[in-house]
Design a protein around this nucleic acid. Structure first.
Length: 821
RNA sequence: GCCGAAGUGGCGGAACCGGCAGACGCACCAGACUCAAAAUCUGGCGGGGCGCAAGCCUCGUGGGGGUUCGACUCCCCCCUUCGGCACCA
């Protein structure tokens, strides 16, 4: 018997698949469409175990769907623009484009070595001008509609990357990519008006029942919707309106001071020329330059100063002092707040520190509160007191009533606030999509005409590691104004690369479309993505931007879909020795080495078997050997049978019932586990059980002519199922049995429900909740029959003889439960 | 602090709708084969107890309570771990 030479087998079948275009769309049969997608990789040059896991999970599903007759779209591409290419350019003095293309080539080769069944004919790279042309096109459409706009704003600046970051890309005060502490600067930048879609993005989450709950919650928190009211306070001396946002209008009678954010322009305006100007300016200047992450930490001590002016509480008519303090944020609400120390912990701490009155306006039902004795704010529900006509109301009703009263008096209105901010997309970088804008001294901001797209990368640039390389080009910046023809200059900022990934899944539906970003008909057919698979790290960033882009494209008339991803699976990390694989920990397992040592089939099998997809997977060198052993056992069990089968040219014979049951039971398990539950680990274990049972059968019945048809039947079905996980060895053995065509493209057999249940079933017999005996009864035995059998058992009689039976329960084919009193 | 997920043998995990806890695999132990080792094959493998043995009893799914004939599964309280958000008025 020849050895299991996995390297030869795998390269052979990869070649045959490729030459025949086996997995290009159209070979799946004319069934219902299914768009299966994994998050495309950044082409770093080498795949890692995280990729292996992500893509193997998807591939098993793609293979099943294809065999089941679905019209499957399963593409692969590269998120090819981005900082690492530029850093490589700086370090190795190469062009980012050359470096990236080389990385893509290397990565694709590895992906093919894994035997993933992508439709490679649809491959795309976002660094292709025919791709990023459409980033620019979409940007211009958004500009026309006011969805892309430019403004000066305090922005997050990463000093290491020397670029601006979006709020979503600042993680715990540091750059999401390089972990450098982020600074705040004020710059003219391009934004996308994602806030315009805040309400829709929030409402849409409810319908995404195919998404993990935690992702929906994260997005919900990120949008951060608060309902409340805008209340117009007035400046005591001038009557000027000072609007504040509050979620607790019911506490308005307890507002004993106001606080402005230090950045608020009103602060310096109001103190100008007064005794307070100097101390307030000193405070503001100190706080404003403070590290923003530190300043906004919850445990930061609250401090502030009185600015020498008072406001009028619109309901009590009383004057209250105005402060500026570090805990109020300029960018949320109106940048100023009403402070209710009795019922807000932050306000309470501040009031105690500065000796401001604490006025109780809500008390717990049936209790009272003494402001002097309070040690913290009472933030719970209760009865309104000291609140004029509202006293005695429950505060939840009070929210409603006070708001209505404000509206009637014209001093406030119901309103909603979001934490979500517009998406800052400008990056001072080279290897990103150039923002297609020209600045003319006479005409101002002028979009690049559509006929001049794409704006491509200049090549006469220097990569020094400092500042934007685009700005070093001698030829790039100079441009004729598209409007007046006069001398003008180009925008040198590029787009955040998350723009690229916000719509690439649409492009896959028609990757060579020339007229538009994608063909509308193709998108109508394929979208939405039925199953999306990727890491949880994109829970907000990529997945949120994609939902935004899909809606923008809908409003541009490009698609009728609003949600891009129907179902989402977030697979867990691959860890080793309890930690994420990383260079610094030295616990990286290289997929190439594993393929070398065990073959792609073994890697695939192990990574699916070791853990269910959504859990973290602990890499085990012993574990992968176990999976390898299973494939070797498969090989040794089936290859000699295949030879016998070919030599014997056996007669068609009846299939053994026991074998049939085994096949159908396993079919049901594998089909459900991979296709519905996506718990590949239990599907693999079902195949292991199958092989164990199969070997037992061979041992018992032998391999004579009478047994061969049954064994062939079992082997064929086994190989079809195994091909989802270990496709190469399955193809090889399939051919050894003399079968035609690819096992990977066989129609998936249906199971017969009748055959998945044994003829006789084991029924547990419980007495007072404890299992005391097991009976073998015919399938579907009736209640009376079961009890008769149970009570006939000596073991059961032992318990029933000295008591009377007070209750009995029967679960057909499962158990009998007897309660003895 | 708020929100979310999870906690089962030495380990990864299984038990899908409230019905036999520990499938499958790893590790380990014993045996077969071998001069020997590796590989391979066979058997055993949650804890405690009784029995020469077949077997039997008992405890056991983070802890405590509850519902139920019956709970890893449902409800209440608590603990631990991981993830997200975090002065958002």
């Amino acid at each position: 018997m020849r050895d299991y030479d996995f390297t030869a087998i795998e390269t052979g079948w990869q070649k045959r698949w490729e030459e025949s275009g086996a997995f290009e769309r159209g070979n799946g049969g004319g069934g219902e469409k299914y768009y299966l997608l994994e998050m495309y990789p950044y082409p770093s040059g080498k795949i890692h175990m995280g990729h292996v896991r992500n893509y193997t999970i998807g591939d098993a599903v793609a293979r099943l769907l294809r065999m089941q007759g679905f019209d499957v779209l399963y593409p692969m591409g590269y998120d090819a623009l981005g900082l690492p290419a530029e850093n490589a350019a700086i370090e190795n003095n190469v062009n980012p484009r050359d470096w990236t293309l080389q990385c893509i080539a290397g990565m694709e080769k590895q992906q093919r070595r894994m035997g993933w069944s992508y439709d490679w004919s649809r491959k795309l790279s976002t660094c292709d001008p025919e791709y990023y042309r459409w980033n620019q096109w979409l940007f211009l459409r958004m500009y026309e509609r006011g969805l892309a706009y430019r403004r000066e704003a305090p922005i997050n600046w990463c000093p290491r990357c020397e670029t601006v970051l979006a709020n979503e890309q600042v993680v715990a005060g540091a750059c999401w990519r390089c972990d450098t502490k982020v600074e705040v600067r004020s710059l003219e930048q391009w934004f996308l008006r994602i806030t315009q879609y805040a309400e829709e993005l929030l409402a849409g989450l409810d319908a995404l029942d195919g998404w993990p709950e935690r992702v929906r919650v994260m997005q919900k928190n990120w949008i951060g919707k608060s309902r409340g009211a805008t209340v117009n306070f007035r400046l005591k001396d001038t009557g000027e309106t000072l609007p504040v946002f509050t979620t607790r209008p019911d506490t308005l009678y307890g507002a004993t001071f106001m606080v402005f954010a230090p950045e608020h322009p009103k602060v310096m305006e109001l103190v100008k020329g007064t005794d307070y100007e100097k101390p307030v300016a000193a405070f503001v200047n100190r706080v404003v330059i403070e590290d923003r992450f530190l300043r906004t930490a919850e445990d930061r001590e609250k401090e502030g100063v009185y600015i020498g002016r008072d406001a009028i509480n619109p309901l009590t008519g009383e004057p209250i002092p105005i402060f500026t303090a570090n805990f109020v944020l300029m960018e949320y609400g109106t940048g100023m707040i009403m402070a209710v120390p009795a019922h807000d912990q932050r306000d309470f701490e501040f009031a105690r520190k500065y000796g401001i009155a604490v006025r109780v306006v809500i008390v717990p039902p049936g209790e009272s509160l003494d402001p002097a004795a309070m040690t913290r704010a009472y933030e719970g529900e209760g009865t309104m007191v000291n609140s004029g006509a509202f006293s005695g109301l429950h505060n939840v009703e009070g929210i409603e009533r006070v708001t209505r009263c404000l509206e009637e008096k014209g001093i406030g209105e119901e309103s909603v606030q979001y934490k979500l901010r517009d998406w800052l997309v400008s990056r001072q970088r080279y290897w990103g999509t150039i923002i297609p804008i020209i600045y003319c001294d006479d005409c101002g901001v002028v979009p690049v005409p559509e006929k001049d797209l794409p704006v491509e990368f200049p090549t006469d640039v220097e990569f020094t590691g400092r500042g934007n390389p685009l700005a070093t080009s001698k030829t790039f910046a100079a441009a004729a104004c598209p409007k007046c023809g006069g001398a003008a200059r180009r925008e040198t900022d590029t787009m955040d690369t998350f723009v690229d990934s916000s719509w690439y899944y649409f492009r896959f539906t028609s990757p060579r479309c020339r007229a538009l970003p994608f063909d509308k008909e193709q998108a109508r057919y394929w979208m939405p993505v039925d199953q999306y698979i990727g890491g949880i790290e994109h829970a907000i960033l990529h997945l949120f931007y994609s939902r935004f882009f899909t809606r923008v494209m809908r409003d541009l008339g490009l698609t009728e879909h609003s949600e891009p991803f129907r179902k989402l699976l977030c697979q867990g990390m691959v860890i080793k020795d309890g930690a994420k694989m990383s260079k610094s920990l030295g616990n990286i397992v290289d997929p190439d080495e594993m393929i070398e040592k065990y073959g792609a089939d073994t890697c695939r099998l192990f990574i699916l078997f070791a853990s269910p997809p959504e859990k973290d997977l602990e890499w085990s060198d012993r574990g992968i050997e176990g999976s390898h052993r299973f494939l070797k056992r498969t090989w040794r069990a089936l290859l000699p049978l295949a030879e016998k089968w070919r030599e014997a040219s056996p007669p068609a014979g009846a299939i053994d019932l026991e074998i049939k049951r085994l096949v159908h039971k396993t079919l049901k398990k594998v089909t459900g586990d991979v296709g519905v539950r996506m718990h590949h680990n239990t599907a693999v274990s079902a195949l292991m059980e199958f092989l164990n049972a199969f070997s037992g059968f061979v041992k018992e019945k032998g391999t004579g002519p009478g047994a061969l048809p049954s064994l062939k039947y079992a082997a064929d079905h086994f190989l079809m199922m195994l091909s989802l996980f270990a496709p190469h060895v399955s193809e090889e053995l399939w051919r050894e049995f003399g079968n035609e065509g690819f096992v990977s493209l066989q129609p998936w057999p249906r199971w017969d429900e009748e055959l998945t249940v044994e003829e006789t079933v084991e029924i547990a017999v419980q007495v007072n909740g404890k299992v005391r005996d097991r009976l073998r009864l015919p399938k579907g035995a009736g209640e009376d029959e079961a009890f008769e059998a149970a009570l006939a058992s000596a073991r059961i009689r032992k318990y029933t003889s000295d008591g009377r039976i007070v209750n009995r329960v029967y679960v057909p084919n499962r158990l009998v439960s007897i309660v003895v009193g």
